[in-house]
Write a protein that binds this DNA or RNA. Sequence first.
RNA 1: GCCGACGUAGCUCAGUGGUAGAGCAGCUGUUUCGUAAACAGCAGGUCGAGGGUUCGAAUCCCCCCGUCGGCUCCA
Length: 644
Amino acid sequence: MEAGGSSPFLPTGSLVLAGRGIFDLERCRMADLETMRHSTAHVMAAAVMRLYPGTKLGVGPTIENGFYYDMDVPGRFTPEDLPSIEEEMRRIVEERHEFDREEMTISDAIERFREVSIADAIDRFREQGQDYKVELLSDLRDRGTTRVTSREDVDVDPGNVETASLYHTGEFVDLCRGPHVTNSGEIGAFKLLSVAGAYWRGDSSRPQLQRIYGTAWATQEELDRHLWQLEEAEKRDHRRIGRDLGLLMFHPWAPGAAFWLPKGTVIYQTLSNFMRHMLVDEGGYVEVRSPLVFNKALWETSGHWEKFRENMFTLESEGQEMALKPMNCPGHMLVYGSELRSYRDLPLRIHDQSVLHRNEVSGTLSGLTRVRQLCQDDAHLFVRPDQIEEEIDALLRLVGRVYGLFGLGYEMELSTRNPQSYLGEVETWERAEANLRNALESNNIPYRLQPGEAAFYGPKIDVHVTDAIGRKWQCATIQLDYQLPERFDLTYVGEDSQRHRPVVIHRAIFGSFERFIAILIEHFAGAFPFWLAPVQAVVLPIADRHAPYAEQVVQRLRAKGFRVELDARRENLNHKIREAQVQKVPYMLVVGDREIEADAAAVRQRTGENLGAIGVDDIIQRFEEEANIGGERNSPSASGSGLG
RNA sequence: GCCGACGUAGCUCAGUGGUAGAGCAGCUGUUUCGUAAACAGCAGGUCGAGGGUUCGAAUCCCCCCGUCGGCUCCA
């Protein structure tokens, strides 16, 4: 495990100069870390080959914080197998094997892996050997790439299709582009984390290989810190906090559908009203409520029946086949089509927070992040072609404003046409993609291009947020659609008194309330900002004789619309404070003899800071200021929405 | 749906073929207390469901459900 000094991966001979030098050094360090992680994957594969002869190798790329390797092993891995593999890896590291690079032509390499397979077969099961590597090489030879999807990691240098490189590490040989550390002794601190099934080349019709995930770092300290972070992240998991804070629950009889408990419902409703305020009061939207169950004719018209039928809950009534809606858009098409529209009516922005159902396959369900029942802060904008950029522009600014309010970091992605699956004309797509790109660029928003990842009806901009354990989730989305208006034959009357086709923009800012709340729970670790906190303050009388006054304080604060509770149990103050802290209540208001005398309460914040006695009227003023988020007064009393 | 793991009290977990346990939470009583856990007692379980093996199953086998980690999918 000795990694050979404090930082063995710093490039020797690179001068650290001010400014850029540090950046370059950091970049070199990252590149070296990746190289080391990939080499660790090789060492792991070598260890598995020793322990499980006959193993066929898939691919073993670097991922964030570590690596994995997909392997077809005789038998099955369980987590109990990992320690012995780690032990074998340490042995290989100690043996200090060189990573020798060998180049050969592809046909030679194919032969070579066949030979390996034959050699293997002698003392093993006489089977084919490294079929997966042979397939990769054949692909490289025939198609010039091993790439299957745009995201697939390649194991072979696509820039050089004449030759393939092999790396030898002791008796272990692997097809690999490299680069690698020069010696297995340079492997840093590592730990194998989990085993999982993974389809060969991501295709569920191909064999399922076994994947081992590991993490690797330059030093033991960095590994320890990463493992500690994983533990900390687990404590933020929205499933744990959601239960501990009494926000939500699940039941086996409603898999994939959350019960929002009273405290969770406060958060849900507060977000719902906040978004309603942003869109309807300020954004020029109108809100509708639309049916949950539709005749399948609607889904046939929209095209979803053909494409997503498997993921829809269907039911039958009086011989009619119906389906629970998985999205709002087709319903909104009917709303638009219900009247003759003028060019003056556009843009028409229809907001809807209806319940949606998607029959996700059971294996994908996960807490609030992957559910079968959800609500989106959905809207469809019916616009003239000349209004597209302006609307996208406004949406990008709205996204920035809302995410900024929560202090959430995010990344934007532009997904363009999938040549294998799209509806409509190529020129229309290209115009739409240009509209989205222009809006992003005129707002100076950095984005990642995702070629081929668009929905079948149009290109889109997705916003991804990272959760506590590093998984990225799509939240906001902005999608252009030229197809649905066509399918529903929607029109508006233009200045020329002719009929024209509107364009639809599908968009959501939170995405689904479920997923967004999951991200907020983890982002705040349950300590919600005052305006969202299910209980904003708890009043704590010190002794029984202080309870009537405490009750008065509670009533005065509630009358101002704040969510305040009384804890008049016969418990020690310490005990009550601890419980309020654990529940992440923003304010604890302690009342005893002195506070009664001064018409005040001693204010403690959940940060642990004690503000001392403050007059009740001043507390009210303080709360009102704090509830006033981002310039919007959002306390329940002001919105008149009956929260609290 | 596929691969793997798991499912014992509200929560966290112990219990590997022989009478179901602990801590915390809960309830009851005592304590009236000044900023993160007072003390004592009590109660709490068809061991996820169903089937099988066995004299006997939480424990072994089968099947189903759910949860978790991934894969696939994600309008």
